[in-house]
């Protein structure tokens, strides 16, 4: 018995080996190396000076870092709840029995197949003044005076809205699929029973659909928070972090510090701080889920 189990373990290990090697080499090893980097002034060509904890103390006093971290947080606050609501609404539409069902599913998911660069450039065209789709439509329906323009990309608040809208449009597909499959897992009998009791659509939604979706909602919320904290490319392309660095998220600051300012040591320090934040968030999420799991 024991021998068999051991053989199975070894066999499993052999099959896992190719992945493990790549994983160790390209994920675990760089992570360890990264910790080392945080204690050095480390440039692209590895001119290294040991600086002890000074990268860390510098980080805590660095206003730009705190600003960038706050901007990432703004993005999380803007996109997470809206993402969940939008995904549920789309899933409800696509889950209704209708001839358009397949059509809805495809168009809601379609933007997700785009790469972030393509989605961002599309967004750039759509929100551009004079020639962009949004302003043209606003002119056409007369909401916006013909001689006025809305500068979506150069006003801080509007830029946040534009970036959030593009991100929502681009990434909602994945969450939509998760909700759709969760909705299809809800047994029909429950709805039938509710109908027999005289419940209307709104009541079934609030009392049946939503509670049944709550586990997946927790998962989506967590994934979404982590993903939003890591926002970078769409902002880099659409606003470049401007105006006045007021939309610059933490990852963009890390990128600029590492590859533009040639200071990989400090960039690594900030990366680990972000890592710590995400880790703490994940732990909290895990704890909450487990407690709930124990109760039910």
């Amino acid at each position: 018995m024991k021998m068999n189990k051991m053989r199975a373990d070894v066999q499993a290990l052999l099959f896992l080996l190719p992945f493990l090697i790549v994983y160790l080499l390209f994920t675990i090893w760089p992570m360890i190396k990264g910790v080392q980097m945080t204690f050095y002034k480390w440039t692209l060509i590895k001119k290294m000076d040991y600086v002890g904890w000074s990268n860390y103390s510098k980080m805590l006093r660095d206003q730009e870092m705190w600003d960038a971290l706050w901007h990432s947080t703004i993005f999380v606050i803007l996109t997470t709840p809206t993402m969940i609501v939008l995904a549920i609404v789309l899933a409800l539409i696509a889950n209704r029995k209708s001839r358009m069902q397949k059509f809805y599913r495809s168009i809601f998911f379609l933007p997700s197949v785009l790469s972030v660069a393509v989605a961002s450039f599309l967004g750039l065209f759509v929100f551009q003044p004079y020639t962009g789709l949004v302003n043209s439509v606003l002119h056409l329906i007369g909401i916006l005076n013909e001689h006025r323009e809305i500068y979506w990309l150069t006003e801080t608040n509007l830029a946040w809205i534009a970036v959030s809208l593009i991100t929502l449009w681009w990434t909602v597909g994945f969450n939509f699929i998760l909700y759709l499959s969760a909705m299809q897992d809800i047994p029909d009998e429950i709805y039938e029973a509710a109908r027999l009791d005289g419940a209307n659509d709104r009541q079934t939604f609030w009392s049946i659909t939503l509670p049944y979706l709550s586990p997946i909602t927790k998962t989506i919320a967590m994934l979404q928070i982590i993903a939003s904290f890591k926002v970078f490319l769409q902002i880099q392309i659409i606003t470049g972090g401007g105006p006045l660095d007021q939309t610059r998220p933490i990852i963009q600051l890390i990128y600029q510090t590492g590859f533009k300012k040639n200071d990989l040591g400090y960039a690594a320090t900030m990366s680990y701080m972000l890592f710590a934040i995400l880790l703490i968030l994940s732990i909290i999420q895990y704890a909450i889920n487990n407690r709930k799991g124990a109760n039910t």
Binding site: P243, L244, D245, K260
Partner: peptide
């Protein structure tokens, strides 16, 4: 030079051009 241009000059002059 390039850092000064990207991280200081562009940043503040852009605000002047936008009349802010």
């Amino acid at each position: 030079n390039w850092q000064i241009r990207d991280n200081a000059s562009f940043k503040f002059l852009n605000e002047v051009w936008a009349n802010k």
